[in-house]
Write a protein that binds this DNA or RNA. Structure first.
Lengths: 207, 207
DNA sequence: CCTACTAATTAAACAGTGTTCAATTATATT
DNA sequence: AATATAATTGAACACTGTTTAATTAGTAGG
């Protein structure tokens, strides 16, 4: 009975090879400019065979961005010992921005690009909904902040979304090159500066 | 000498017809799915002739989004009589979000899509830099707020960027369908709710 | 060992894309 | 009317994602 299992492993291995090739190409050229034929060339298979492992191109990149969520989530683990929720909230923001700036293409895929699964019955995409533990983590932290007395009269859900939007807005404007409107001498540091402004606003709100 | 001028007008007119066709198709199908051949079909010219009026596809959509900036800017005109800068700031945010939600495809083109001019010497794109008067308007309003005593110890430039990022973040997460992570029953109103949270934070900061 | 059967792989084709270019048509100037 | 200039075209190029029929490889049963 070991044969079927070995075949299973082989199949899984090739699937992984496709993903690795796709990731390498996408980090180098972006999603749009990475073609099925490019990937096929790299792993020395024919273009058609890729369709035995993935339904279409979207599925490849959807599989890829899952890895991104795990990366981001694992970065958040250092926050576990931080007791003060306000402190934790700020550090979360810093980690989020740092991840985005260090992995702009992956961030782009995860949060900016048109969702690969938009056309599918979006309820199908349970991984995104449930799997996006980072937002749940953010919500839980905000909840704690409220319980401790900060953000009085604020709504947990809406405030969580607002905080997420703030950091997402900064990094996505940066990644998509919309920061040219800020003063030239500030452009290189504007995301960091903006984040610090955000922190000092949080500080002012929490006293 | 009227002939040369008439030809000039004719040329300008066809250029305009291309833009109108492109806009119609793009609002209906999006940029990626609007092809040069589609546009050519609509105006009943050959695909090749379009290249006598625009360098490439990017230039068409770059020309289109200029119109979007004018639209957005003209919406801001109602703010001129608002004396209180804090009041004006909030209304600016509301107008910005409203514009984005009412014209998601145009907003996408203007602020989310990969900048069409990224590869060109970006200094070439003076329209974007100078022409984006909305950010200058925001900066001026923030400056007034600071002068009046709000946002003490804050940096004008960074704070302007932060405020822009906040509204941009909310609408772009919404437009690019990343709001599925928020509670299902809140999804339809989350941008509005987030904006209100933002307003109440501004209120708390300005006293 | 040979035959079946299944699964993996392929080349070729389809319909589309942005873009270029030589040839053609239309227009205006002399 | 002939010439120069500009606009327009169809065809071609090199791509794209995807499908499919045919081929090859690998396994299971007799």
């Amino acid at each position: 009975m070991g044969i079927a299992e070995r075949k299973e492993r082989d199949k899984e291995e090739l699937r992984e090879r496709i993903l690795i090739a796709a990731k390498a190409l996408f980090l180098e050229k972006g999603v749009e400019k990475t073609s099925i034929r490019n990937i096929a060339d790299l792993i020395e298979y024919s273009p058609g065979s890729i369709y035995h492992y993935f339904k279409d191109k979207n599925e490849i990149f959807h599989a890829l961005h899952q890895g991104g969520f795990q990366q981001l989530m694992s970065r958040m683990e250092v926050l576990a010992p931080v007791q003060n929720p306000m402190e934790r909230l700020k550090k979360m923001g810093a980690i989020y921005v740092e991840f985005a700036l260090q992995n702009p293409d992956m961030y782009d895929l995860m949060f900016i690009k048109e969702a690969p699964m938009a056309h599918v019955s979006s309820s199908n995409d349970e991984e995104w909904k449930e799997g996006f533990g980072t937002f749940n983590f953010l919500r839980a932290t905000i909840k704690e902040c409220i319980q401790v007395g900060h953000f009085q009269n604020h709504d947990e859900e809406a405030l969580s979304f607002l905080v997420w939007s703030t950091v997402h807005g900064m990094v996505s404007l940066h990644i998509r090159r919309r920061c040219e409107v800020v003063l030239a001498q500030r452009q290189s540091t504007i995301v960091k500066d903006g984040l610090n402004e955000f922190f000092s606003i949080l500080d002012r709100l929490s006293q």
